[in-house]
Design a protein around this nucleic acid. Structure first.
Lengths: 205, 205
DNA sequence: CCTACCGATCGGTAGG
DNA sequence: CCTACCGATCGGTAGG
């Protein structure tokens, strides 16, 4: 009931980010209004505008907030073994989202607005660049260690990102529950058939 | 200036479909209004509502219209040789869209609304099923002729669709001009490394 | 198929 | 940070 004895100072910005998250999950992006965020926030719409001048400013801040969270979870991957690290990265990208369907939907909605909102586009590009860099680094590391073929690492990273984005889109658009799992398998096929040196090509079927 | 001597009876439905197409390209889906479609149509908004009860009815009809067009262009592919037919199908899916950026954008916007509009979802599923069936048929044909490995055709078709959808999403969201070309190359790698029997694995690098 | 209009909703602001 | 409100826009309809 009561706040814990040592409550952290309730940062309004943090609270609004959380409220935005809940509102996005509930209503999606197309039906996201300042009023609905304010309802989740527990205050008036003017309270939102007091902290963020426009709706787009708020949403740009929210995308930054999401990007930071993503970077944090990637930092949790401590493994340096290229093969294992690649698997964990692909799991992060293609397995974890299974439990966040609502967010996948809202994010595709926002992504589809990138051509009209430069602030959105920039953030999605930033996120993509970060993820792609992670993949490329693992691939190059694997090449150095001789467990990956001497492939074009940039292209291979892009190929994997295409698979990731394809799976997410299909999960949302077609309501395909196993799109992520199918993509996870496809990514493994790609790694095994194109990247890996020792032909353990048995697992492909 | 004047109409050609033998003008086909101007079918209002067809005219509205064309108007919808132009309005979608100009304004995208999020900013698509009945008024804007009416402007392209050259008549009042009430004229639109005379032919289509609601906005969603019109858009559902438009998706049917698009699906028919797509089926027609696929029918143009006469080749029966599996390898060549696969290449042509992939070109249709990953090369042709280069010249239709505006439509790629509008379509991703509409696709992102599939979770909220059953009528949309159904049509996208239908389109996907058709395309996937085409790919699967080619793969099975190739297997029968011994030029493709005896793989899981259903999975391979789904893998290729993931690549297609990933490329389209990335083209729109990240404004990546070569996302389609990268995906085209990735699809070829997949076909060569996973499907093809004779190892011409030289082209992969 | 048109003109005129309605009810609803939105982002944002004034004034406190 | 609140109440009250504005201007703009939307999908859809009445009446002809």
């Amino acid at each position: 009931m009561a706040d814990p004895p040592e409550h952290t100072a309730p940062d309004p910005n943090e609270e609004i980010m959380r409220a935005t998250y809940r509102a996005l999950r509930k209503h999606g992006y197309a039906d996201l209004t300042i009023k609905r965020i304010a309802e989740e926030y527990g205050k008036s719409t003017a309270a939102i505008h007091y902290h963020y001048e426009t709706k787009d400013d708020l949403l740009a801040a929210y995308l930054d907030y999401l990007l930071d969270q993503f970077v944090d979870t990637v930092r949790d991957i401590k493994t340096t073994d290229p093969e294992e690290r690649m698997e964990l990265l692909l799991d992060k990208l293609l397995v974890d989202p299974v439990d966040h369907q609502d967010m996948l939907i809202a994010m595709l909605e926002m992504r589809s607005q990138a051509p009209y909102k430069e602030a959105f586009c920039e953030r999605f590009q930033q996120n993509d660049e970060y993820t792609r860099y992670m993949l490329k680094a693992v691939i190059n590391h694997g090449i150095d260690e001789g467990i990956f073929e001497n492939v074009d690492a940039e292209h291979a990273a892009r190929a994997l990102m295409i698979i990731v984005d394809g799976a997410r889109t299909r999960t949302v658009v077609l309501d395909e529950e196993d799109a992520l799992a199918t993509a996870r398998r496809t990514a493994d096929e790609y790694v095994t058939a194109i990247l890996s040196t020792e032909e353990a090509a048995d697992g492909i079927e």
